[in-house]
């Protein structure tokens, strides 16, 4: 490499001819290095290293007119989760005269509820009702909880006025 020439220079000077100092073939690489690192930095910054993840969801098809009646679900198997404002989660089991309770998205919140309910009710069906004041994040979080808790049967349904009243009356 370019360094080798360093050794040779001294000897040549001793020989009578004064040769013009052999111009070293060394090139000042600094600007090139600057540029290389500039480009490197640029590409490192603009690369999106972690590709975004996705969550696949399949929504039920719209019922057609001549569809057979869907099988009835025992109301005792139903756990309803209502997503309220400010990341609140309301839940109740059954449909007639339910006892509504409030929880949150933490690991000891809705996750625990789902776990105990899953153990209690073998044929658990979860109905997720996001209210109009809930955020998209809440919806993703609750779908996440379904995956964490390995809930086989769940559905996202619209909130009903009854649910809204229930929440209002519960004062939670």
């Amino acid at each position: 490499m370019a360094e080798i020439q360093g050794g040779g220079d001294d000897k040549k000077k001793k020989g009578g001819k004064v040769r013009s100092k052999k111009s070293s073939t060394r090139i000042d690489m600094t600007p090139m290095v600057d540029l290389a690192f500039l480009l490197l930095t640029f590409f490192v910054m603009t690369t999106t290293l972690n590709k975004p993840q996705t969550m696949e969801i399949t929504m039920p098809e719209k019922p057609k007119k001549d569809d057979p009646e869907p099988p009835k679900v025992n109301e005792r198997d139903v756990l309803t989760i209502v997503l309220g404002e400010n990341d609140k989660v309301y839940w109740y089991t059954g449909i007639t005269d339910p006892k509504i309770e409030l929880t949150n998205f933490s690991a000891t919140g809705i996750r625990k509820v789902l776990q105990t309910k899953k153990n209690e009710i073998p044929k658990l069906v979860v109905l997720i009702k996001p209210s109009d004041k809930s955020k998209y994040k809440n919806m993703v979080d609750i779908l996440d909880e379904m995956n964490i808790g390995v809930i086989q049967r769940y559905a996202m349904v619209d909130i009903t006025p009854t649910d809204e009243e229930l929440i209002k009356d519960s004062q939670l």
Binding site: K51, Q53, M55, N147, I148
Partner: peptide, 9 residues
């Protein structure tokens, strides 16, 4: 939002 899903797009 974040999720535990690990499917890449």
């Amino acid at each position: 939002p974040s999720s535990i899903s690990e499917i890449k797009i």
